[in-house]
């Protein structure tokens, strides 16, 4: 593990790193470094399997965080390669030529967050949503309640409570469950 991490540090510009568990390491890099790093990892290290791709919307900072979870199938350990891309531009490099299963992840991310992966097949093809005509629903500036009120009439007489205030009222003066 450490030797691989040392090599990553030497070869690529690592912006931050974090050891979440002994078998789960996080490495942050610039967007341009992602594909070279993943190519090198797949070719020269035991991290050969792309297990997951996920996105976090950092609305306040104007960024999307893209995470590639790589797994070492024999050593039972994982490596997360994390990068941040601009929220307005929302374009990332596709990794589908390294791992064909990335096509599906990229299709779903494209639909749910509106991030484009140029060159990846099935971009813009509906994955879950059919006939969606609003901004991508997983972006944090998408107001789901407003959308619901516009599209799905709710039954008269239903009361809505905000879970946080309601639980706070029940729990007591703290206002919320966890500090």
């Amino acid at each position: 593990m450490d030797t691989i991490l040392d090599e990553i540090r030497t070869r690529f510009a690592v912006t931050w790193e974090h050891e979440q568990r002994p078998d789960l390491l996080q490495v942050g890099v610039e967007p341009v470094t992602v594909v070279p790093l993943l190519t090198w990892l797949k070719a020269h290290t035991p991290y050969v399997q792309l297990t997951h791709m996920s996105v976090v919307d950092w609305l306040e900072e104007g960024q999307f965080q893209l995470t590639y979870l790589l797994t070492d199938p024999e050593g039972f350990r994982s490596l997360m390669v994390v990068t941040r891309i601009d929220r307005e531009e929302a374009t990332a490099e596709s990794v589908w030529e390294l791992w064909p299963q990335a096509v599906t992840y990229e299709q779903e991310i494209n639909e749910m967050f509106g991030i484009r992966f140029p060159g990846s097949p099935r971009q813009g093809v509906p994955f879950i949503l059919e006939g969606w005509d609003d901004i991508p629903p997983m972006r944090r500036d998408f107001d789901t309640v407003e959308y619901m009120n516009a599209h799905h009439p709710s039954r008269p007489g239903r009361e809505h409570t905000d879970p946080r205030t309601y639980v706070g009222k029940v729990v007591g003066e703290k206002g919320y469950l966890h500090d």
Binding site: I128, L129, P137, F142, T144, V145, Y147, M148, H152, P153, S154, R155, R158, H160
Partner: peptide
């Protein structure tokens, strides 16, 4: 199916089946 239940504010589930 009656009033949306706990998923009433989800973007892709219906709130009232009888419509």
């Amino acid at each position: 199916t009656i009033n949306g239940g706990m998923y009433w504010d989800s973007y892709n589930t219906i709130n009232r089946l009888d419509l």
